[in-house]
Amino acid sequence: MDPARINLSGCFNRMVYGQNKRMPQDMVKKVFFGLVNFLVIIIIISASTATRNIDDRDIKIDETDPTPLDAGSVLLVKNSAVITIEGSTSAAVLFEVLAEAFMEKNPEIKVEIMANGTNAAIKAVRNYNADFGMVSRHLKANEKTPGMKEIIIAWDVLAVVVNPENRIGNLQRDQISAIYSGRITNWSAVGGSDMPIHVISREEGSGTYQAFRSLAGIEKVTRSAQVTDGNGSMLEGVAGKINSIGYVSMGFINNRVKVISIDGIYPTKENILNNLYTLKRPFSLIYYEQREKNGTDEFIEFLHSDEARSIISKKYIPAE
């Protein structure tokens, strides 16, 4: 085995050919049979282990209401100085900063945050695995159980943005829906100049995407839409193309894009709190009123303080 032979000259070379340097013609068949064998073995192995390995993240919520435990028994098992919060990944970014500020003020209380999705949060709160759940949408009726409280901490507002050079300043809600569904493809159809609309959307599954789709009433985003992986790439795309339209969370708006009004209403603070502007989703906390008092009251109180509100207003609108 001389050192020159270490180099990579193809994955399967050495396995099939052993010490031969070059591939003899009659070995061609063996390559294919080798590969087929390899795949068959793998598929058999994986098929047999497949069902066992599906994730523990299965988040079905059982329909039967869990009977709320009495506070005393919970107190026994839990460390009383730790608040656990689970839930939505997008809300978690905000709550981590809030928790940091809270812990600076209350060093005796520790706040632990786990970002694992809204559905997991509901499950965790119902099973008493977490004190609070962070939820980034309104709860459905069947998700609420007696005794569960939901307080809205902040509003995440979605702004529809276009390139500053686009002369469009307002769109109707159904026009937005038509543009994103691919029914309107030229700006002239909505009163703009004659150029094709470049639609920019977000990746499937992201909270912003789902909120926008349901709030704007879009059934299926057009296939020719550009898909960006975050607010930053979205801004980059809208700022870079004169004919583009996109949507971002209000906290990320910069001066390289233009926010347009929907049905004549701009996403100002008043319009949002008056429910005039509807492209918004709540970041809320859910919890059981009947729970252990391990600093959770202080935390809720803190969330309504001026300090918390000033943190929230960096990117979101604090709820009243």
Binding site: G10, F12, R22, M23, P24, Q25, M27
Partner: peptide, 21 residues
């Protein structure tokens, strides 16, 4: 990888080949 290996077997089979160090 496999396709290229087969092709490379065809090509370099005819020529002298120098293994790179």
């Amino acid at each position: 990888n496999i396709i290229i290996n087969i092709l490379s077997g065809r090509i370099t089979g005819r020529n002298m080949s120098v293994q790179p160090v």
